[in-house]
């Protein structure tokens, strides 16, 4: 269980994180989304006791991270896969931390195997690792103490599609076994595939939080396009269908595809595209929420504008 309450962090005059609150329950994967510089990493560092908050609290299992006697057994942390000594071998990085935790060295080998780092890679110095290999090493590091809670900052960064799928399965499995997973990402599709809940922050503030399905339902719509856009707008207006213009000339209608098709047929408008805005829904939501002046939203909030792809 992760509880973040009113967490803020000020750098000089700038509020990097501004009153962020959310909860991650056991058995769930929470996707922590936001554009670059939104305050995701700062929030996660505050959660892990690495950045002192200006105000607010963050606890894991009801305990502040800094008060955990041996946090490696409670929270697996991967904040920056590149933050490892370039001159140590991958295995040595794990072996050092295993010593700190008092975990048997055999677990190190088992974990290297689990994350797909073969023996040859284990002996290589981290300097020679690709970003994807560093992420795998970082995941193994986070799993050393077999903790019920995982906090991962951009873990899919640098992983190939196969690696992303592997990680998604791993996180899903841990959550299904009662674990709590919090992962940040800007790879929206990855989060959409694995997360049960979403927390979206923009400019240091939570803009949307809730179960993924509810948030996505709010983002649903129909993408419709015609070479005669004025006629299409008239047809929709005539049928009483609400719509918003997308950035690339299409319209996003807030209804079912069939209703749009009927309206267009009735008005004699030829359509060049008609589809549910399903694919990349999260990205649309993401873009709309991160746009300047977006309305702070909760689950089910109707948005002013949707950017379609």
């Amino acid at each position: 269980m992760i509880e973040v309450q009113n967490l803020s962090r000020r750098y000089g005059h700038q509020l990097a994180v501004d009153g962020v609150s959310f909860t991650c329950a056991p058995g769930t994967v929470t996707g922590f989304l936001g554009p670059n510089g939104a305050g995701k990493s700062t929030t996660l560092r505050m959660l892990c006791g690495l950045t002192p908050p200006s105000s607010g609290t963050a606890t894991v299992g009801g305990v502040r991270f800094r008060d955990l006697p041996n946090p490696g057994y409670r929270v697996g942390v991967l904040l920056d896969a590149s933050a490892q000594h370039a001159g140590r071998t991958g295995r040595e990085v794990l072996a050092l931390s295993a010593r700190v935790l008092g975990v048997d060295a055999r677990r190190v080998d088992a974990l290297m195997e689990l994350v797909g780092l073969p023996r040859s890679a284990a002996r290589k110095r981290v300097r020679g690792y690709s970003l994807g290999m560093r992420q795998r090493l970082g995941i193994a590091h986070a799993l050393l103490g077999d903790p019920p809670v995982l906090v991962l900052d951009e873990p899919a960064n640098g992983l190939d599609p196969e690696g992303i799928r592997w990680m998604r399965d791993l996180l899903r499995e841990r959550a299904d076994r009662g674990g709590t997973v919090l992962l940040s990402s800007h790879l929206l599709h990855e989060v959409e595939a694995v997360a049960d809940r979403l927390v979206m922050i923009v400019n240091g503030r939570v803009r949307a939080a809730g179960p993924k399905d509810e948030l996505l339902a709010a983002a649903d719509g129909v993408v419709v396009r015609s070479s005669d856009r004025v006629a299409l707008e008239g047809a929709l207006r005539g049928a009483g269908i609400a719509w918003t213009p997308s950035t690339d000339g299409a319209l996003i209608a807030r209804t079912e595809p069939a209703a749009v098709g009927l309206a267009a047929a009735g008005a004699g408008v030829a359509l060049t595209e008609l589809r549910a805005a399903g694919a990349g829904r999260l990205e649309e939501l993401f873009l709309s929420l991160t746009r300047e002046g977006a309305v702070p939203a909760g689950p089910g909030t109707v948005r002013e504008e949707v950017a379609a792809r």
């Binding site: 006697p69 057994y73 677990r107 799993l143």
Partner: peptide, 25 residues
């Protein structure tokens, strides 16, 4: 702290769970 124990089958080497409540010496 909830008493959830999440074990990865592939990394079957057990961890000394009682160590969670002790600081590393």
């Amino acid at each position: 702290m909830s008493a959830v124990t999440v074990t990865s089958p592939a990394a079957s080497e057990p961890v000394p769970r009682s160590a969670a409540d002790r600081r590393p010496p």
